[in-house]
Design a protein around this nucleic acid. Sequence first.
DNA 1: GTCAGTGCAAAGCTTTTGCAGCGCG
DNA 2: CGCGCTGCAAAAGCTTTGCACTGAC
Lengths: 153, 153
Amino acid sequence: MIGIVGTRSRRHGEWAEHATAELRRAGHRSGGARAAVIDLMAAQACCLTAQEVFDGLRAEGRVVGIASIYRALDLLARLGLVRRLDVGSASGYEPALPSGHHHHHVVCDRCGKVSSFEDPALEDAIDRLSRRLAHTVAEHDVVLRGACPDCRP
Amino acid sequence: MIGIVGTRSRRHGEWAEHATAELRRAGHRSGGARAAVIDLMAAQACCLTAQEVFDGLRAEGRVVGIASIYRALDLLARLGLVRRLDVGSASGYEPALPSGHHHHHVVCDRCGKVSSFEDPALEDAIDRLSRRLAHTVAEHDVVLRGACPDCRP
DNA sequence: GTCAGTGCAAAGCTTTTGCAGCGCG
DNA sequence: CGCGCTGCAAAAGCTTTGCACTGAC
């Protein structure tokens, strides 16, 4: 595995502060549910579904309505603070780290487990490509699929 | 726009025959609904949702139950004959052309329109990367997002 | 004749929305 | 003390499943 994503906790701690500040700056009040979602998201290395956020919070004893979780994640996504990843039946959400620390995903087509990787050469190819398209490309996602080491025959 | 996908009709005509043959080879009988789905898919340059297939067939007067469309697309996807693309709330499906003729997608984040492009350099970066991962990578999708020419300010 | 393929309707999941009440600022 | 945030419940997609029937082989 190349480009394993490290130094997670520091970056993500900064992310929680940043997200909270951006919300305030955009004129939003602070409430318990949204703060709980941000706390939990800040502790994640990779993407979580809304249901997983719900379950994770309940496991901590912080019971939050699932609707509030969707509303919080949607707002964070619209402010560019989380990335939404469509892979399968439910969307995944993860903290959007500062540019240059993108990562992408490999999904095991047997067990469904999602892992992440970073690859500068891939980012580079996408950057070059983006400049040549007629669209004003703002973001990108790469999803690879295949058997993970545990599932390989 | 680079790498515009051309020579669609010939490749796709071949695709319909290939798909039909593969289904037979896998022991499936031929039925009206599935044949209609294959016909319609063969005429597509880019991805369609199940609902769009349903509407398209109805427009031709070939009324097919939506459940049969989902079943046909699911079977074709499991045989590797169509690719399923998760981008937004509904899945898109498109004919899987022979290796080397992959294309990927740009989604306009304003109007939602999906366009396609090909880029050998990108394929190359993904191939190299795939060889270095612990997974046995079988396929990949790249989705770019940004304003399309019509929607740009 | 057998069993895969099909259509309809119902169920299942994920996500969104309406609404009443609470609480931040 | 107004309006945004929240929870609950209902509704709204998208997709799958159960079942009876038709039709391919």
